[in-house]
Design a protein around this nucleic acid. Structure first.
Lengths: 162, 162
DNA sequence: AACGAAATCACCCGAAAGTATGAATCCGAA
DNA sequence: TTCGGATTCATACTTTCGGGTGATTTCGTT
């Protein structure tokens, strides 16, 4: 902020200026009134000065409090966000050979795990339904399971598929 | 921090103080000049008041700046940190309600995912096969799938089950 | 007490899945 | 070239799954 802008900003705060003027006027009236009644003439200047000092010191403090910008402190908090394990690791080659699944059987297994029906898999692989059944039966034997759901469960558990 | 930076920082942080000081000096000069030419004794009170006002307003501001602790405004910025999921987090409650699965339906879903047949599930839950079929049918409707394998795939993908 | 959601069970039917057996073709290794 | 595994397909059969409908009971809420 430049000095020009500071000055402009100060004067743009009209309410403060108004308040300032009104306060001053009222004070002068009060002083005049007091002068006529109670205060002794030979101390009027000191009293006047003291009152002015107090008032304008207070005004200055009030202005400063209003104008000073709060210091901004930025705190960076690390927030843990759990994400799916990104599956970048490949399928378990060791377990792969252990069950002796053929390439085609593994392919069928993956499609079964994706939730496809045998007919869907047949269409996808351009083979007959019977072929898919044969493959699935054989891979069930090799995995020692009795249904496609068990096969998927075991295959995922052993990371044969992701 | 170097001396240059310190001084620069001081001036930048106390622009308002500087402004008041400069204004005061200029005003005094002006008054001296005016006193020598036009204004004399008959305006001394107003001038004195103005000068006092400026001085003590400046004093007030200076005091405030010196004594008042700057308000610290704390801004918290959350930074997301990706971590591998270790499977310890519970099922997704938000998605849970989205599908409106009942307690029993979720139970059946979990057993289906474990690879059990409907008959197995019936035995495990001590209910009839028909009951399991009803539950599974209803949960398939709610999950908008057509088979147990698809249900398992979707449920695991959405963390409805682990 | 009335209500609605949840849970339970039954029966029927068609579709899908799985088993068993046999067979043809292809392809890489011995 | 021969052999065996892999792949393909077929037919027949059994089991399981899933949809549809209807009914009863339980239980918490109003």
């Amino acid at each position: 902020m430049t000095m020009i802008q500071t000055v402009a900003g100060f004067f743009s705060k009209n309410r403060q200026i108004m308040l300032y003027g009104v306060s001053l006027a009222m004070l002068l009236f009060l002083l005049k009134w007091l002068e006529l009644r109670f205060l002794v003439i030979n101390h009027i200047v000191e009293i006047y000065t003291g009152v002015l000092a107090l008032i304008f010191t207070g005004l200055g403090i009030w202005l400063a409090v209003k104008l000073i910008k709060p210091e901004v402190k930025t705190v960076i908090v690390e927030k843990e966000v759990r994400v799916m394990s990104d599956g970048n690791f490949s399928v378990n080659e060791a377990e792969m050979s252990r069950f002796g699944l053929s390439k085609r059987e593994l392919e069928v297994l993956e499609l079964i795990a994706a939730g496809l029906s045998n007919q869907d898999i047949a269409s996808r692989l351009f083979v007959s339904l019977n072929t898919v059944k044969t493959h699935s039966s054989r891979l069930f034997e090799k995995l020692e399971v009795k249904s496609r759901t068990q096969a998927v469960e075991k295959a995922k558990r052993l990371s044969l598929i992701r």
